[in-house]
Structures are given as C-alpha cells and as structure tokens.
Design a protein around this nucleic acid. Structure first.
Lengths: 335, 335
DNA sequence: GGCCGTTGGGCAAACGTTTGCGCAATGCGG
DNA sequence: CCGCATTGCGCAAACGTTTGCCCAACGGCC
C-alpha cells in the first residue's frame, strides 16, 4: 500500500488535513486532546511527512550542499565529518559532490547541488572562489560559505584558519631548536591556504633573521609524491636545509618516506614538520610533528555560519586558530 | 526577483505550461520549432526546473542515500568517491550520513536519509545488517544495497568482494616466501568482511599445512592502535610469527610503526601484509604489501545495483575480487 | 438579552511540476 | 466532399503539505 499521507490521517481522525498538520506541529490553536489523539494516530500508523511536499510550500529543503575536492583527502574527510555531525544536529541533510581538485568540475558540482535545491552551499578548499562572485547578484539566494578560502560578495561567507600564524609558529619552533636553514614545500598554487602558509613561513624566516633564499622553497600539489620530489631537490643543494616545513601532512609523510629511503635519519639528519595533523601522522616513523587544524570544528563552524545566514543574522566570517603538536619528527640539528 | 518558473515561460512564450514542460522534455508531440523556441527561451531566462515540484509528482527525488561508518576511514572515503562519481553520471545526487561505527546511529542515519525521501539507500560496511530486514515487508519501497555485507530480504541487494580468496592468496604468498608461522590481526567482530578474511586466512593456513594455533590470531577494531597492541602480544609469544597478515592497512601501518619502534626490521625480522591498499600504504616505510580492494569499483557497482533495482531489473548481488599488490613489507624470513 | 472576545477548527489557495485526456486543425484517402 | 487518422497543443487533476483567512460556538460582560 502507498505511504500514509496527512489526508489519510485526517479522514481517519475525522478532522481536516489542516488540523492534522497543525496538531503535528504542536500548534496551540488545536486543543490538547485533539493534538494528543492525532499524534498518537500518526505514530500508530507510522506516518512520515513528505519532505518533498513540505519543501514545495515552505521553499526549504533542509538540505545543505557540500562541494569537496576529494573525500579521499584526510583533511577534507575530517571537515566533512564535522559538517555532517553539526548538520544532523540541526536537522539538516548533507548532499555531497566532488570536484576532483578541478575548478571546472567544482563549479559543475556546485550547480548540481543547486539544482537539487539545497538551502545552502559549503565549499571546502575551493580552487576557484572567484567563480562564485555572481552568486550574490545573479539571484542565487542560497548562502555560500567558503572553507579555507574567501571571496567578497553578498551572501558569501568564509571560515578559515589562521594559516600564517601556524606556519610562523612552526618556523619559530624550528629556529628555537637550533635550525638555521629551514626549507618549505608549498602546496597547490591556486589555493589560499597554500599562499598563506608560504607567507607565514616567510614571516617566520624574516622574524628569526634566517636565510630566505628561494632555493629553500619547493612547490607541489599537497600529495606524498611532492614530498619525494622536494627532498630530491633539497639534497641536490650545496647546503641542504636541516629542517623542512611542509604544506600538509601528506607531503610531509611522503618526504619522511623518501628520507628513510635516502638513508637520512629523522630528526637527526633532517627535521620534518607537517601541517593538518591527519590521523596517520601520529603513527608515522617517526611520529610527525605538525600544526593541527581544528578540522571538525571548522566543519561545525561552516554549518553555524550557513545556518546563521539562513536565519537572517549572518556572521560574515570565522577564523579559527591551529596549534603546534609536538611529536618526534623535529629535533635539534645534528651538530 | 523570484526564480523563473515554468508558468512564467508559458506566459512569455504564449503557450500553456504543459507545452513548456513537454518541450523541455523533447516530447515529440511538440513541433520542432516550438521546442527550439521554448528551449531557447528557457536558456535565455536561466530557467531551473524545481526538482522539488518535479519530485512531488514523479515520486522520485533522484537522490541516493549513503550511510557510511566514517568518511575519515580511507576505505570508506574511496568507496564513497566511486559512489559519488557513478551517481553523478547517472544524474543522481548523494545524501550522506555517518554512523560513527555505531549500530544505533547507523539505523538512525538510515531513517534520516529515508525521511529525506531518497530513492535508494547504500550502506557501506554495515554493523547491523539484520536491522534492515523489515525494510522489505514493512512497506519501505526503497532498494537497499549493502556494501561488504549482506542480508536476505526483498529489495535488499549486496555488493561484496571475495574476502576469503584475498586472504587465502596472501597467506599462500607468505608461505611461498618461506614463512611457516603466520599471524593474523582480525578486525571488528561484527563485520562480515572481518569474518571472511579470518576464514580465508584459516583456509590458507590449512591448505599450506601450517600451524593453525589460536595464539597466532589477535583481535582489533581495524585501527592503527590495534596493530600496536597485536605486535606487543605476538612478541610475548614463545615463538613469535615471522609474518603477519592484517585485517586492513590501517592496522598494518600501526603494526609497522610499532615494529620500527621495537627495533624490528621489516621485512627482515617480520613480514607484514595489509588489506585494502589505501593511498598511504605505498608511502609507508617500507611500502606495504597488501591486498587491493577495488574500492571505487565497489562504489560504482553499488550504484549500478541500486539503479537496476529502481529500474525494475534487480541484480541480486555483485561480487568483486581483489588482487595482491606486491611491495616491500613482505619478504623471505631471516634464516 | 445583545455584544464582543476568545477558542477551536475548516476552507481553499498556493507551491511548480507532470501527464492523461480531450479537442481543434490539418492532411489524406476514397 | 466526407470521414478518419494524425498532429499539435491546452485543460485540469494530481502530488502532499502549509497557512491566511473565515466562521461557528461559546462564554462573559454590561
């Protein structure tokens, strides 16, 4: 048999559909007895309101869209986890679409989510923030929150972390340990977080009065392979760095593996610091010193910002700060 | 201004809404000229059909629900990626909810997705397959596909991999390498895949005529910590194993790290084989020999099965097979 | 006893589509 | 020239809710 509708309930309870609707919403206009009676009936018959019909009239689907570069990236996964948890608590569902780190696909993903009538859009680590500029004035009424990125525009919000401070802190820490040549492996060129971490690295280097030559900076895409390649390049230098700060843990982990293969002892011959603190970092050999990103908290913050915008009391942006977690991959330089 | 509706288009094009609807669906009952005209108009005005309204009448939301234990698990993430890609290609959206490896939350997640009117439900590595039994006869019309698990019942399908064969193959490989005492670190007790891999391990042991004593089998939850604990236990044995097969890569990676800390050389002193082939396994020290699960393919298969059920031509189950990927964490035993 | 305020509930419109059916015009064959 | 099939399109119902407004009954007040 077909699912039971509000009309079925009305017929059985001998009242009008509107009364049933109100009773289920605890509307005070319905007498307490009727309310109880109807709610009991609904319960008994296993009534499930049609979200679709409801959405049609209210204009809200209670669904939020998330576009992520790739759930396979541990950072993204953790954020997504926070998003999902917070969304669920608020009674929202989460529609997800992946961009595969590709700007064009990212926009396509956003469009698809919009087609599904999401109430809000959350973009994790966008590669093409500027393409959302039209969202505000072209009549897209859904709030957009950019995570780890930003873009001016009406109805566009952002939650980020203070990447500069994190990178700066890492450099300062390495300097305090006694390192004088500190390398950096940057992340994807387009990304804001990559730019900021690089900038923080430079600030730290300057603040400590260290060698700021460009040969100490390598570029990558934030993958383990990049750690590999960067180490090779560093080792070819006349004076290789004694410590390396990486754009993210994935890169650092790759660099760690490459160092092991090259016969380098970590942290004896080379100190390595990552960024993000993904779960596996704690189990690397040696355990990775890294800058923790409050990933789940960022996810939750994104939901808060989004819901606030939906509720008409927008929070323009939210900046969270990370914290250096000390493990064993960084130590005093050899001599 | 409010979004443009099919009625707006009708008024502007001087036709009825039904004509517009049909024209946009390329219905042959509408003359080619009108069709072109209307489609052009829709394009020009940026018309976006209301999926909600459409769903209300068609009864389909073109949304599939995925309940996952935890996206943070690399295995889950890869599967999800396959699911999302295949779903998108088929024009479906993906609603996601997490169970946090908790049976009660898993069911709650499924209910939530159902409330959102998903057309089908995919459960990755269910911890409580039996609780879905009521789905068929209690009037839930949505097909349910269990990934890496199964449950008899109408409208319940399953896609799995041949875990026994995979574990068997791994054991056979280790035996061929010269190992005679081969340990096993099992996964979560409830899980089907854990049971099957254990069973495959036992079959392999028997087939090779090796020591099958229970002291060679440890239990865990599939996390890096479990690898740690298992190694400790193995080392306390009078005759520790010379090789260990792990329930999954996460466990194996943890075991690898613990071995390094204990001063064991891998594979010299101990060979380690994982299961799943998550991305980081290739970058472990040493790179992990593991049984590959065709994760993305499983995700795609789940979509296929689900869509087939929706299309009225159900595929009852789908079994994929893995393949041993040889790297450096397994080799000949020392002497 | 008339008036008015309150209480409890029903009517019907509205949300934006899809689709079965009806119907006019057109073309064709006989 | 008539009848009939075909073509092209409109009418209206239906999907399951929510919600503004109306209305009846009832009680209290003067």
């Amino acid at each position: 048999m077909p699912p039971v509708s509000i009309i079925d309930l009305a017929r059985i309870a001998q009242v009008s559909p509107s009364t049933v609707s109100r009773a289920l919403q605890d509307n005070p206009r319905i007498s307490p007895e009727r309310r109880a009676e109807i709610q009991a009936l609904a319960e008994r018959l296993g009534y499930r309101p049609s979200q679709v019909a409801r959405s049609l009239v209210t204009g809200r689907t209670h669904t939020l869209g998330v576009v992520a570069s790739d759930v396979t990236d541990p950072f993204v996964a953790e954020v997504l986890k926070g998003v999902e948890a917070a969304a669920r608590e608020a009674g929202y569902g989460v529609l997800i679409a992946m961009s595969n780190r590709n700007p064009a696909e990212e926009i396509e993903a956003a469009e698809i989510l919009l087609d599904h009538q999401v109430d809000g859009l959350i973009v994790i680590s966008s590669r093409a923030p500027e393409r959302y500029a039209r969202f505000g004035d072209e009549g897209e009424r859904v709030p957009l929150v950019l995570l780890n990125n930003e873009q001016p525009g009406p109805n566009i919000y952002s939650v980020r972390m203070d990447n500069e401070a994190g990178a700066r802190e890492a450099v300062t820490y390495l300097h305090a340990l006694g390192h004088r040549r500190i390398g950096f492996v940057a992340g994807p060129e387009g990304g804001r977080s990559s730019r900021e971490r690089l900038s923080g690295y430079r600030q730290g280097i300057r603040a400590c009065g260290l060698d700021a030559s460009d040969e100490l900076i390598r570029h990558g895409a934030g993958l383990p392979e990049d750690g590999h390649a960067a180490l090779d390049a560093f080792l070819r230098l006349a004076q290789p760095p004694t410590a390396v700060l990486c754009y993210n843990d994935l890169t650092a982990l790759g660099l760690l593996a490459a160092a092991a293969r090259a016969g380098l002892r970590v942290p004896g011959d080379l100190s390595v610091v990552g960024y993000d603190n993904i779960p596996l970092s704690a189990f690397a050999v040696p355990p990775l010193t890294t800058v923790e990103q409050p990933k789940a908290a960022m996810g939750r913050a994104a939901i808060e910002v989004c819901l606030a915008a939906l509720g008409g009391e927008p929070i323009s942006e939210r900046i969270l700060s990370g914290q250096l977690v000390l493990r064993e991959s960084a130590g005093q330089p050899a001599r």
